[in-house]
Amino acid sequence: MELIQYILIGVFLVATIVGYKLINNVPSRLHTPLMSGMNALSGITILGALIATGVALNSKEPVVGYIFGSLAIILAMINVAGGFSVTNRMLKMFGKKKEDETTIA
């Protein structure tokens, strides 16, 4: 194993532990937006999709790689864009000030 691989394992452990600790402080009423926000973050794999597609395009047989790479880019992008945007939509509702108590239907 190379040095970078040890570093990656270290980064993984630190991120997991620190992330776990911070998430512990999120109140349960925000668990749905938390989850959809985390879900959006898992679309970070867009980075991998972009790199892989780039490698494929520069290879000897770019077509198949390009098709699958683009598929990965589209899927990851749906994950990122949809996730962050719907989380924002939910949190906007939470941020709203109390509705006027006098409006009784």
Binding site: F12, A15, G19, T45, I51
Partner: peptide
């Protein structure tokens, strides 16, 4: 693929889930 950001952020998401 040896990408640091992917590892760190993926780890955070894994922990939260």
């Amino acid at each position: 693929i040896g990408d640091v950001l992917l590892v760190s952020i993926g780890g955070i998401v894994g922990a939260s889930g």
